[in-house]
């Protein structure tokens, strides 16, 4: 466990020694802030209009449903497709390029300690992004009264969604010495997993349903609504586990090939 923490600490320090951490956080803060402002402004205008109209027959406005949910479900999930590859692309590719992988693999560490350490380090940076998002959402508490409990589900969903992307991105990073390639391939794979459930629009057969189930987004909907569903939880944990397992296999193969 101490070794895992050491590796995680090293990864996190590397993010902050290079521009990557600042770049990712700045991009996320700007994008998240812009969309949050937009959604909130639209919400306020809509509320005033409904007050003027006396709220006849319209469903009551709810800040969780009308601001926070679309922010997570419609926007941040997409923003992350772009930003998570920036976090994961260097995890193995850079170690392979600079030869430091030889230091890691010849030190008295197990492969799994290295993998978990790297995953944990990347996850820490990701949690900082989450903090940024919740800073924005926290502002709502100053001027309104959003329900706090659904936010916990939002946070958990956000963490699991990111964890799934991170573990898959880490796996993809083991295949190349080139960070750019790792980043682009990760983005393509993430995008594909994101749009998988679009097939459900025209295919209701087994294949369509299976693909829809595999999509990263279908399982996020409940979390965005503030609902924790066991099947969603299992789905994300499985994807994280799969990513870590595939990374382990890939590192094993790496040794055979040199």
């Amino acid at each position: 466990m101490r070794n895992v923490v050491t590796i995680a600490g090293k990864e996190l320090r590397t993010y902050f020694h290079s521009p990557i951490a600042y770049l990712v956080m700045a991009l996320f803060a700007v994008l998240c802030g812009f969309f949050f402002y937009n959604l909130t402004a639209a919400y306020v205008i809509e509320t005033f209009r409904m007050l003027e109209m006396g709220g006849m027959g319209a469903p009551p406005m709810n800040i969780n449903e009308n601001v926070i949910r679309p922010l997570f479900e419609g926007i941040l999930t997409v923003v992350l497709l772009l930003l998570v590859p920036l976090i994961t692309m260097r995890l193995y590719a850079e170690e392979k390029r600079s030869g430091t992988i030889e230091l890691l693999l010849t030190s008295p560490l197990t492969d799994m300690q290295i993998i978990l350490g790297k995953f944990l380090g990347a996850l820490c940076l990701y949690v900082l992004l989450m903090v940024l998002a919740f800073l924005d959402i926290g502002l709502l508490f100053l001027y309104g009264n959003p329900a706090a409990k659904p936010l916990l589900a939002n946070a958990l969903g956000f963490l699991l969604y990111g964890g799934a992307l991170l573990s898959l991105g880490m796996w993809i990073s083991t295949f190349t010495k080139n960070q750019i390639i790792a980043g682009i391939v990760s983005f393509a794979v993430f995008l594909l997993l994101y749009v998988f459930d679009w097939v459900s629009a025209f295919s209701n057969g087994t294949v369509g349903r299976a693909m829809s189930f595999m999509a990263l987004t279908t399982h996020f909907d409940n979390f965005a609504k503030g609902v924790i569903d066991l099947s969603d939880l299992v789905y994300y944990l499985s994807v994280i586990g799969l990513g870590i397992f595939l990374t382990a296999r890939s590192v094993e193969a790496l040794k055979g090939r040199a």
């Binding site: 101490r2 070794n3 050491t6 590796i7 290079s18 600079s98 430091t100 030889e102 230091l103 010849t106």
Partner: peptide, 24 residues
């Protein structure tokens, strides 16, 4: 083990690097 290409992290200082190598 010292590989042909020294396995150093260019972003780290010498002290940080040695501390990391020692810990692992």
């Amino acid at each position: 083990y010292l590989p042909e290409l020294p396995p150093v992290y260019p972003d780290m200082t010498v002290d940080e690097y040695l501390a990391f190598a020692g810990r692992i």
